[in-house]
Write a protein that binds this DNA or RNA. Structure first.
Length: 594
RNA sequence: GCGCUCGUAGCUCAGCCGGAUAGAGCAGCCGCCUCCUAAGCGGCAGGUCGCAGGUUCAACUCCUGCCGAGCGCGCCA
């Protein structure tokens, strides 16, 4: 429709130029946007104000000339030049009503678009270290990333969702060691648990699994573990070197069995993460193992490629990537003096791997604390010879968790965190997913547990779901009322939908497709959440003022069609952000236990 | 110190690529159930869009400075 209007304006301008009524040095960019205020019609253009400078005439006068020179259109009922110089376009009623037919025709498929042009993109998100269960801090990235994947798919992209599993680093060694020490305790040994070990109860649970499998086979003389180990923090030493020493001894003492303990720990934790994410309606196409990058030759190949490009130098015994040459803040270490490859080296290899797999774009979703990664990843992309525009990094700001007024502070290591699972159990996936994406992802978010849990009108997700349930309820009751629904009769009589509330609802429905397109282009998933709230509001207002189950068969079926179309959009929109659309909801007003 | 992000109603936030009287929800006040779920609807009140400049026909929106808040700046992962 916007294209059609642009054409009308373009033709009008050509007429005016041909008739020498105006002169244009440059062809202006014709902007047509949806009118914000219904009083201004359906679409508006600012063209007259844009070209007023060239023409040196009052914009209103120009606008009026354009309107006069414009051809008739069967879709447009009214064109008007107004105050500062806008040209407002009103669609014919028939044109506006089309959206209902289209939705009923295409159903779940309605709203999709092809701006993705079938491009292949990979979206990497969550990627939390598998050293413990996901907590609420990971929840926002999961909710945002998953919703973005859905929106991109609906916009014609081929999307590959990936979780990067950091199964190789020092943290994993600390985890495996922590499990083993807990295992020894279960076997009855007395030992001093390192300050920097993983403290959570889930470690003990895993230790139980290890014991169930190996019995007492992995026991050793406890003193050997702490042989030649430097002092821990609470003993006046350094907790990092203490744990490193313990890890080293653990590896030596367990030999081949170390890998077995490690594997059980990883499998348990990753399994738990997968389960939690599935409960949260978050799915991945691939769980990409960092370890595999090391075991294959990807890291070496990536480093060789950087060396070939002369982007690597040796300093103080370590190998550095000259990232600052490519716009990063500083140079980055690829391989440490002790020969260990850094985490960044894996990142470079992984980036190269993604690009070699042929993606048109690699989208990364990071927590805000990782914003230092933007510079170094873009630098790596450039140095490897890729277009840095293909690397798209979105930062998700932190969510502060509140219970009423009380704010939670969390730390993974100490084990004092609220897990994602707890959140799902407490407030439910529907409310949690909505709350996580209701604000722009680059904004801080205050997440109030009490509010998300409350089944009251304070809670926007219930407001939207209730609109869906109401529609379902109407359709359920038709048979009992002896009022059969006939979509055909409704379609013929759509023109009967002419009250302000009906028009407002239709208008809202007609904005769904462009809302998705906008969300896909800008990565602003929150616009979907906002849209759904507006749609639900338009529906509730319509519903309060227009009786659907009336005796007039023509009007009833027309309104039922409107309800049906609204229901499809509500369900589809909720699915995009990972929430469900219940067909039935009931107030707890009559719960006498309160 | 350097870098990134943010500052809109009492609170939590929308406001798309600059556009026509700055919008919701909550909290406050006042109404509406013999009627399709009151998890709903209607109304009132609430604002110098952090401050100061600049660009523009037009600035909450773009630019600069200042004030204020948060985060990041390891041969950590």
């Amino acid at each position: 429709m916007i294209g059609h209007i642009q054409e009308l304006i373009e033709n009008a301008l050509e007429h005016l130029v041909q008739r020498d009524e105006i002169e244009l040095e440059t062809t202006p960019d014709i902007q047509v946007e949806r009118a914000r205020n219904p009083e201004h019609g359906d679409y508006a253009s600012n063209i007259a104000m844009v070209i007023q400078k060239q023409l040196k005439k009052p914009p209103l006068e120009i606008a009026e000339k354009i309107v006069k020179a414009m051809n008739e259109s069967k879709h447009i009922s009214h064109v008007e030049a107004v105050k500062p110089g806008f040209i407002n376009f009103s669609l014919t009623n028939q044109c506006r009503l089309q959206v209902i037919k289209k939705i009923l025709d295409r159903k779940e498929d309605y709203g999709s678009n092809d701006i993705g042009k079938n491009q292949h993109v990979t979206v990497e998100f969550v990627s939390a270290n598998p050293t413990g269960p996901l907590h609420v801090g990971h929840g926002r990235g999961a909710a945002y990333g998953s919703s973005l994947v859905n929106v991109l798919k609906k916009s014609g992209y081929q999307v590959h969702a990936e979780y990067y599993v950091n199964d190789n680093g020092r943290q994993m060694d600390i985890l495996a060691t922590s499990v083993w020490l807990r295992y020894l305790e279960l076997c009855g040994d007395q030992l001093r648990f390192p300050d920097n070990g993983y403290q959570g109860d889930y470690i003990v649970d895993i230790a139980r699994k290890v014991r169930a499998k190996f019995g007492d086979d992995l026991r050793v003389e406890v003193n050997q573990i702490f042989d030649q180990v430097s002092k821990d923090e609470s003993q006046g030493g350094d907790k990092e070197s203490h744990i490193d020493d313990v890890v080293q001894n653990t590896k030596n003492l367990l030999n081949d069995n170390y890998a077995k303990v490690f594997k059980i720990a990883l499998k348990q934790i990753l399994g738990g993460i997968k389960d939690d994410l599935e409960d949260f309606n978050v799915y991945f196409d691939e769980w990409f193992s960092e370890k595999k990058l090391h075991e294959s030759d990807w890291i070496d190949r990536a480093m060789q490629r950087l060396k070939d490009g002369d982007h690597v130098f040796k300093k103080d015994g370590a190998w550095w990537f000259n990232a600052s040459y490519f716009g990063d803040d500083k140079d980055r270490v690829l391989m440490r003096e002790n020969g260990q490859k850094t985490y960044f080296a894996s990142d470079v290899a992984y980036l190269m791997n993604k690009m070699e797999r042929g993606f048109d774009r690699a989208i990364y979703i990071f927590g805000a604390d990782h914003h230092g990664y933007i510079g170094r990843l873009k630098a790596a992309a450039k140095a490897l010879g890729y277009d840095p525009e293909k690397v798209d990094i979105q930062l998700v700001q932190f969510a502060n968790l509140f219970k009423g007024k009380e704010k939670f502070k969390m730390s993974t290591r100490s084990g004092s965190f609220i897990t994602l699972k707890t959140l799902i159990d407490e407030v439910g996936t529907d409310a949690a997913r909505y709350f996580y994406v209701m604000r722009s992802h680059d904004q801080h978010l205050d997440f109030d547990l009490e509010l998300a849990k409350s089944q009251t009108k304070d809670n926007p997700v219930f407001y939207i779901q209730y609109a869906h349930a109401r529609i379902c309820s109407v359709f359920r009751q038709l048979d009992a009322q002896n009022m059969p629904y006939n979509e055909e009769i409704g379609n013929v009589n759509l023109k009967l939908l002419d009250t302000d509330h009906e028009k407002a609802l239709i208008r809202q429905l007609s904005m769904y497709a462009e809302t998705i397109a906008k969300a896909a282009v800008s990565y602003q998933v929150n616009t979907i959440a906002n849209y759904l709230k507006d749609l639900a509001q338009a529906f509730h207002q319509f519903y309060a003022h227009c009786k659907v189950q009336g005796n007039n068969e023509d009007l009833r079926n027309a309104r039922l069609n409107l309800c049906s179309a609204t229901r499809y959009i509500l369900a589809d929109g909720l699915a995009l952000i990972g929430s469900s659309a219940p067909t039935e909801m009931h107030s707890e007003d009559f719960d006498y236990n309160d």
